[in-house]
Write a protein that binds this DNA or RNA. Structure first.
Lengths: 162, 162
DNA sequence: TTCATATCGTTGCATATGCAACTAAAAAAC
DNA sequence: GTTTTTTAGTTGCATATGCAACGATATGAA
């Protein structure tokens, strides 16, 4: 990732522009690309699978014996069902998770994390943790981190079903 | 996009967790997904191409006659050259941009926006503008928007080459 | 019970993205 | 001037994602 210190790309060319919200939006958009790319690259360089795998493993690791129905996972991680189905394919191929037929619902199955999956998530965490440290904790003050948290929470809650 | 009001998914299960930066990270990650998805969906529902097309058209629209070399575009939008090459393929197929041989560098070409491209960007903007209004301006106070801008700026500058 | 409808999950197809290899031309080294 | 190295851009391949259609089961209504 090699960013040039270019002038900020504003979203419009129309007059009376840009509004403040538009500047904030463009920065948010770009930071998402840059920061995620940094974290993904760190994981990859350490020989680990991408963040989406971590998310899935984490959700399953929270439900040790029981496992989770696919649609339950879909509610937790932001993936629609067909993508989730194939993400699980990939993890199952690596023996990190396991599909088990569901005895209360013949249509579905229950996804359980394997011991190998548990170990994988555990091994990924230090890298992930350090990456978060680098992209969030180091550049910002405590106050800024609190503020960021509050703002993101506000933005998210606006779009959550009640 | 149908988000459940689920408990926040924290990134780790390790003890003494989570640090504040980790909460902020997870919220940032998720809000980026959600907000971008909302904006992309609005564009799509209005019959328009995705944000990446807008970005490219905008950069070119800023250089009306001259056009831009592909590597110059690559510096402005965050795309590596092979993806950019194919993005331009798609836009060229829709006659929104045009590849012109570069007379000062036989290897490269100059990308110019067409009149149709200019019109397309102009037509997309009201939808995009309204989407930004909805996901950023409406939920946040002016103060929060300023704060968000400052924080994103800080996060980004940390990872820019000097 | 039976039929219509909704839900769970998978698959085929089109598109998007990352990586590595490649062509061609420019720039640098000699 | 010739050779080597870098740079610009494209293409093939593997993978990832969105959409629509599908099979199978569960749920609700008559």
């Amino acid at each position: 990732m090699h960013l040039q210190p270019i002038a900020l790309t504003l979203p419009s060319m129309e007059k009376n522009r840009p509004k403040k919200a538009e500047i904030a939006w463009v920065l948010l958009l770009r930071s998402q690309q840059v920061l995620i790319d940094i974290v993904e690259t760190k994981l990859k360089n350490a020989g680990f699978p991408p963040l989406s795998w971590y998310d899935l493993l984490l959700e399953l690791d929270r439900e040790p014996g029981r496992g989770l129905r696919q649609y339950e996972i879909g509610e937790r991680v932001l993936l629609n069902k067909h993508n989730l189905s194939r993400l699980i394919d990939r993890l199952e191929k690596q023996a990190l998770v396991q599909r088990v037929a569901c005895d209360t619902d013949g249509r579905g199955n229950v996804i359980k994390i394997t011991e190998k999956g548990v170990q994988m998530r555990k091994a990924m965490w230090p890298i992930y943790e350090q990456a978060i440290q680098e992209v969030i904790a180091n550049p910002l003050t405590i106050k800024q981190i609190d503020s960021l948290t509050e703002i993101m929470d506000t933005l998210l809650n606006r779009h959550i079903d009640v």
